[in-house]
Design a protein around this nucleic acid. Structure first.
Length: 662
DNA sequence: AGCACGCCGACT
DNA sequence: GTCGGCGTGCTC
């Protein structure tokens, strides 16, 4: 009598499927291994959750083959997947496929195993710690030695020596025979950083990011599993690195948005790291100059141990920030104000470099007919098309649709078409006009996506073959050069007044981060921020480099309006091709939720239903409902919602703990 | 989620 | 007449 495998599949159905195990695979199939099984008329990989003797299911099919020669997920990771599926409301199979991506399978082609060179830990590089660094490292080491879960939050400006604390803590973990996961925002995983960390830890390190090939991913994953590497440095998904004896998880730049996964399961890596550390009795260290409001609040409430590093290692001062009120300026100075221009003149005269930052969101140049006010919009999405001067096209930034620039308005036949808004190209033009002798480069999604363009611009700037670098978010991170002494923010408002509860927090973090690009060396530096809201607390606090004052004001605002950390949030998004069906479905669900709330006397708020901020993307109409309340109550409410029948053609997606509610 | 089956409108 | 749109239901 052949045994039966209970297999969990990566489909949105929270129910396992039974397969008989053929004689030939009897010894290879065990709990935790992945197997290839027939499902309908396709073959998919699933997890053996259990092996049983008999089943009530008639006509079961056979396991086709076994993928792993040892369990792919150990007990802790399996528990973590169960937690993921509960917290983020998805099936266990979907959660498991986040823990062990399906790309992780043995390559068909076998590579020659090149001999491994082990360098071990290079202690000689370890610099002497300051008193503060030593105190923090000791506290972390203490917990590591106790094999106890603990979470630490380090708040310290760039240059205050957080990285050294991370590295020392990792060394301690390794010395105790434990492994370490070092999480970074995707953008920080630059070759420069990797070479620094490799020089410190040698071949103990694996690197994990989205650009690895399938084969590289599998080899890295396997060597972590086998314990051949002890440290994994990587983006979000490396929180699932299958280390057996995990000692420490570091989350650098804890406030970064890229730590939230936008597809199902919509986890935040911080929450996963905390949960995993609890299951493994490991330590979590989070660090940031501008911790997320939630985390700082949790630290204030004793959930995390808070350490603050107030000074830069070298006692260098933070650059002075000038805020320029754009309201007082004449139209011709709207892009570049006098203080902005003067600072730039001085910088160039000293033969130093400048970074000009422009946040593109909601700020791109668009085309408008002067006669009838028509604005060119995308046919598939409810957004304006963006004017691209280089290619002479109108481009949709949501669906990628592009069309040539018209010479006449199709409505009124006027040929009086003008461009509104400011983009990086426009700023570049303006700067070229003002500084014809300066060497100017531009870095944004358009230029950075071209092969090697990013590297070329980066190298050029590094080698000082370029005086002014204009860019979007991409220049706010990782562009640390000693000769940058001026940072200019063209318009801080684009992020400030988005209709989102986190926009002030984001603006504060961004301004702080951008400012940090100036004055990294003894040359000093200065920052100019242009805004129409110079009195806004996020900007005033950023100017004063005062996180705490920002925190105090922002936390009051969150409390008054009942937003995180004072409640949990769930964003329910409904999409469909027929506007009417989507709005009807949204209504049905809202009614159902309100009914449940009343019946259970539940402390939740059901906000909506409203069309999403961008009502249509790629031809799909979008409506949303926002749920507020305690996380566990919200999950119960969502369970209720699963029972209601909906008009066809409407897709529901849940975002648990959304980063924004736009 | 995928994928097939099945039912209605607009083409050569 | 049939091609293909999408609504429905099932997958061990």
């Amino acid at each position: 009598m052949s045994k039966i495998a209970v297999v969990v599949l990566p489909i949105p159905l929270n129910k396992p499927f039974h397969y008989s195990i053929p004689e030939s695979l009897q010894s290879a199939v065990s709990k935790g291994t992945r197997v290839l099984v027939p499902f309908g008329n396709r073959k998919i990989s699933g997890y053996v959750a259990d092996i049983i003797e008999t089943t009530y299911i008639a006509n079961i099919k056979e396991v086709y083959s076994v993928i792993d020669d040892a369990p792919a997920v150990d007990k802790n990771l399996f528990e973590l997947a169960k937690w993921l599926s509960t917290k983020y409301v998805c099936s266990l199979g979907e959660a498991l496929s986040a823990v062990v991506p399906s790309v992780l399978k043995p390559p068909k082609r076998i590579f020659n195993n090149k001999p491994e060179h082990r360098f071990g830990i290079n202690k000689s590089i370890r610099p002497t710690l300051t008193q503060t660094q030593q105190t923090i490292t000791d506290a972390i080491t203490h917990e590591l030695k106790n094999h106890k879960y603990e979470a630490f939050l380090l708040r310290g400006v760039t240059g205050s020596g957080k990285t050294e604390i991370y590295l020392c803590a990792i060394e301690e973990a390794l010395a105790l025979g434990k492994s370490a996961i070092f999480l970074l925002p995707e953008i920080s995983l630059t070759p420069q950083f990797i070479s620094i960390i490799k020089s410190r830890f040698g071949d103990n390190i694996g690197v994990w990011h989205s650009k690895l090939s399938v084969g590289e991913k599998y080899r890295t994953w396997l060597s972590a599993k086998k314990g051949e590497i002890k440290i994994m440095v990587g983006a979000r998904s490396s929180v699932f690195t299958p280390f057996e004896k995990l000692g420490i998880i570091v989350i650098d730049e804890e406030h970064e948005q890229s730590y939230k996964q936008d597809k199902k399961p919509t986890y935040h890596v911080r929450e996963v790291a905390l949960e995993r550390a609890k299951l493994s009795n490991a330590v979590v260290i989070m660090g940031s100059a501008t911790p997320s409001l939630e985390s700082y609040w949790r630290a204030q409430n004793g959930e995390f141990r808070l350490f603050e590093l107030h000074e830069r290692i070298d006692n260098k001062q933070l650059p002075p920030i000038t805020i320029v009120d754009l309201n007082c300026l004449s139209a011709k100075h709207k892009i570049i104000s006098e203080p902005f221009k003067n600072a730039l003149i001085k910088t160039l005269a000293r033969r130093e470099q400048a970074v000009i930052f422009l946040n593109r969101r909601g700020f791109s140049p668009w085309l408008m007919c002067q006669a009838c006010q028509k604005v060119w919009q995308c046919h598939n999405c409810s957004v304006s098309l963006v004017y691209h001067k280089d290619s002479q096209e109108l481009v949709c930034h949501y669906c990628g649709h592009r069309q040539p620039i018209p010479d006449k308005c199709p409505n009124c036949s006027s040929d009086h078409l003008s461009i509104f808004g400011i983009g990086t190209q426009k700023v570049e033009e303006e700067l070229k006009k003002n500084f014809p002798q300066a060497r100017i480069a531009r870095l944004d999604r358009d230029t950075a996506s071209k092969k090697d363009a990013y590297k070329n611009i980066y190298e050029n700037f590094k080698n000082e073959d370029c005086d002014i670098l204009i860019g979007t978010q991409i220049v706010a991170k990782g562009f640390d050069f000693p000769r940058v002494t001026f940072v200019g923010v063209v318009d801080a408002d684009t992020c400030l007044y988005l209709p989102d509860f986190r926009s002030a927090e984001r603006t504060f973090a961004l301004m702080t981060q951008v400012s940090g690009r100036a004055g990294r060396s003894s040359l000093g530096g200065e920052v100019v921020i242009q805004t129409k809201h110079p009195q806004h607390y996020a900007l005033v606090a950023a100017k004063q480099h005062d996180y705490k004052s920002f925190y105090e004001q922002e936390i009051n605002f969150r409390k008054e309006l009942n937003y995180p950390p004072f409640c949990g949030l769930v964003n329910i998004l409904l999409r469909g091709k027929k506007a009417e069906n989507v709005s009807k479905a949204t209504d049905t669900i809202t009614q159902e939720l309100l009914k449940w709330k009343k019946e259970n006397n539940a402390a939740i708020e059901v906000l909506g239903s409203t069309p999403a901020a961008i009502e249509k993307i790629k031809g799909m109409f979008r409506w949303q409902i926002l749920l507020k309340g305690k996380a566990d109550i919200l999950i119960n409410a969502l369970m209720q919602m699963k029972n209601c029948s909906l008009p066809s053609g409407v897709i529901i997606t849940l975002d648990i703990d959304p980063q924004d509610v736009l």
